[in-house]
Design a protein around this nucleic acid. Sequence first.
DNA 1: ATAAGTGACTTTTTT
DNA 2: AGTCACTTAT
Length: 773
Amino acid sequence: MANMELWLSKLNPEQKEAVFENNNPLLVLAGAGSGKTRVITTKIAYCIQELHYNPWNILAVTFTNKAAKEMKDRVLDMLPQEDPSSFNIRTFHSFGVWLLRRFTNEAGLQPGFTIYDDSDSLSLLRTRYSSMTSKDLKPIMKAILKAKDMGLNPYSKGLSELSIEPNIGRFFEVYEKALREVGNVDFADLITIPSRLMDENQNVRDFIQRRFKVVLVDEYQDSNVAQFELLKRLVSPSTFICVVGDDDQSIYRFRGAEIENILSFPNVFPNTKSIVLAQNYRSTSNILDLASSVIKHNSNRHEKVLRTDNGKGSKPQLYYVNDEVDEANKVYSILKRNQNFSNSAILYRTNAQSSAFETLFTKRHIPYKIVGALKFYDREEVKDALALLQLFVNSRDIVNFRRMINKPTRGIGPTSVEKIENFLPSSNGDVFAAMNKAVTQNVLSARCTNSVKTFIATMEESYNMIDEGNLGDGVKYLLDKLGLIQHFMNEDKKNNTFKVENLNSLVNAISEYPSTEKGLLTFLEEVTLDRTKIGLNEEPQEEGVTLITIHNTKGLEFEDVYVAGLEEKLFPNSMSDDEEGIEEERRLFYVAATRAKFNLYLFSAKSRRVWGRMEYDRLPSRFLDEIEEDQVEVIGFPNHKSPSSWDDKASKYLNNRGDYNLLDEKRYTHAPRHGIKHERTKPNIYKNNSNFPEDPSSLIHKGFGVSSKSFEFEKNDDEAVGYNVGDRVNNKEKGEGQIVSSINKNGRKIIEVEYDTGVIAKYIAKYAKFTKI
DNA sequence: ATAAGTGACTTTTTT
DNA sequence: AGTCACTTAT
């Protein structure tokens, strides 16, 4: 109780009003840094402590995994006595899966359904249009997925605006049919199928509406039409609904986010109470003023002004730099001077921009953590392993069947695959049944038949092992026996890559999950919904500079913010060159600038390596032009051959700040402006780590999915025999324990270890990795 | 059936 | 720079 008073005392009158309203629908329009997450978390605490709701009566959804995690952490900080698993604080998509796993039958799905990502969806569409290339199908697929996010169906009128393909509806229809036949779902289905289910099934609707008495939505400006439709169905007349958002921070239009959702909220939910939070608690006024100057160039927005009592603070600085290497050097110099690594973040528009910073920071031993790095998940070998696991739980998954049936090559070419697939219609779509039929009816060549038999047998063996031992062992066996380890070992040798180590990381990650089909499903679901779940599984870096895309910084704040790559074509990005696109890019800039509490540094390069080519004479971002002259201190100047307006600007800076060069050199004597070329290292560290003479192991925790452990192969039987009941053993991760049972099953020795921590784990002796004490 | 090589082409953000 | 479709040689 006393806590509640303390929390409330930290709120201003508008925030308190938002916490206390618990009857009428509530729309909170919250500017950047106005404490909206604090409002939501306090509101959750208030609902539980004062209004005596149970945690499971509350549903809080947001848009990104990062935001959901942040919110959950903060709620648990306030309510440490509550069981974390009783809270439904999730992303929309994760809530959708939660619902579909609970009502799998009702939704017409099989328990083993998995989630297709966009590239899987494309592969699926390709199976139905075999004469078309994926290049042709890609834009069509993209339009279909966006249509689904917008709540459209194959027969909707609005489809034609999304694609130049006149038959887009037909493609959409075929895709949906294929997806239902396979039995999997795509991301959009995680929203639309629950909506449909609640329309069609009274029981489900009653269950959900009775269960969730309070529904809260954060980052509401990023919700799309499909999500709004779901939201409407979650809310009964007795549900309290509260949404919090800021139209200036809507940055997911490309995925169907609809600012209209905010505008139409009061119409859809009668008696809506609106509260505006305009007091900013994060940034200094110098930073807010700069951000406001830019965002006010957007015409499609609600005019609003943020206040702050934080004082003027230091003036934001704009650095004109030579190229991306120079940019990294400048950032490095300021970071070193400020000595505030853990409270600093480097923000960029595209993930690819991280590499210049990574290269430099690795060389200079600057600690850093990278968010949503070059995706571990997207790596070929990782997707291969995941494909096999998906086949385990859904044997109608033709996409992953095609991916892996002949990889590494085992003599099952396109002709043979087609012969196997001819049996699909008579096998209820089950690829294993089809393979069996192809074998028994002898339609394949002798060699091919043999390969297919081995493939099936290996999958079965591995599946049985999962039942008996631990998940990691079963997967390891599978990858080894199917020849993937050998295949990638050869590739690694040839190309200096780390694919086998990456697979080992994956096996480590998966070992944490229960060794059951459910454990497997949970693992697959978590990695698909949050790609950062794997790859960063070495100890996460606590200290260090944060490298992050602007999209990922929503809801975060840092004392010092460095915004890199403020150049035309990059930011604003050339892909968003229509008016609406530019406005979205401008909102992105606004989000970036308002992450900063004290210091804001902006960077614009004259040249930049793009797609492997050096681009010279790049234009500074138009957003820099929209900053008032007295709002920023300029260092360097944009000395490019450029349109006349920029020549004027350049000379203006020269005249106003004739001493810029001197200042610059004095301040950063250790950052070489010239002669950078010979220092340049190859940005792609996977390919060639010989560029890093010092301490290659320092790459390990940087989120590259590179593990120091080499892949362990099966021990011979002699070694395995050595484990007996009563032996003390030591496992690197789990510590010391004792073997409590040992049985033989299907010719394999299974041992059970009870660790001193109380944890009991089963292993197949051959694959167990511990030492006898 | 497959390895190896060539040439054209791409460009973003996340669930 | 990296991917993908296609060709050529084994």
